[in-house]
């Protein structure tokens, strides 16, 4: 396998829970998105904590995500939308709409 060869080249055959830079970067989104099993997630987290080359990559992705979240949070729901939706449901009921 090509990956095994690369892992050996990068000194990844150390056993235990250590992973290579390549493996960490490959899984960066799976890690941030909470899609990894606990043991894999812990291994990736540990790599980012100790690897000075990879750490800024994670910080950059985190800064990017925080910005997307804060920009999206600014768009508040219009005043009264909840009431208008509830009124709409009342009207739907009075029209005697049977559920499909």
């Amino acid at each position: 396998m090509v990956m095994d060869t690369i892992r050996k080249m990068l000194g990844g055959d150390r056993g235990g829970d250590e992973i290579t830079c390549m493996e960490a970067l490959e899984q960066i989104y799976d890690f941030m998105d909470g899609e990894l099993e606990a043991a894999d997630s812990a291994a990736v987290q540990k790599h980012f904590e100790v690897c000075t080359a990879c750490y800024p990559h994670l910080k950059m992705e985190e800064n990017f995500r925080r910005k997307v979240q804060s920009a999206m949070a600014r768009a508040g729901t219009p005043t009264g939308l909840r009431d208008r939706v509830l009124t709409l449901l009342d009207e739907g009921e009075s029209e005697g709409e049977a559920p499909e």
Binding site: P56, K59, M60, N63, F64, R66, K67
Partner: peptide, 9 residues
């Protein structure tokens, strides 16, 4: 390196 420029946007 940590992409702090995102904050300025």
């Amino acid at each position: 390196p940590e992409g702090q420029f995102f904050d300025s946007i």
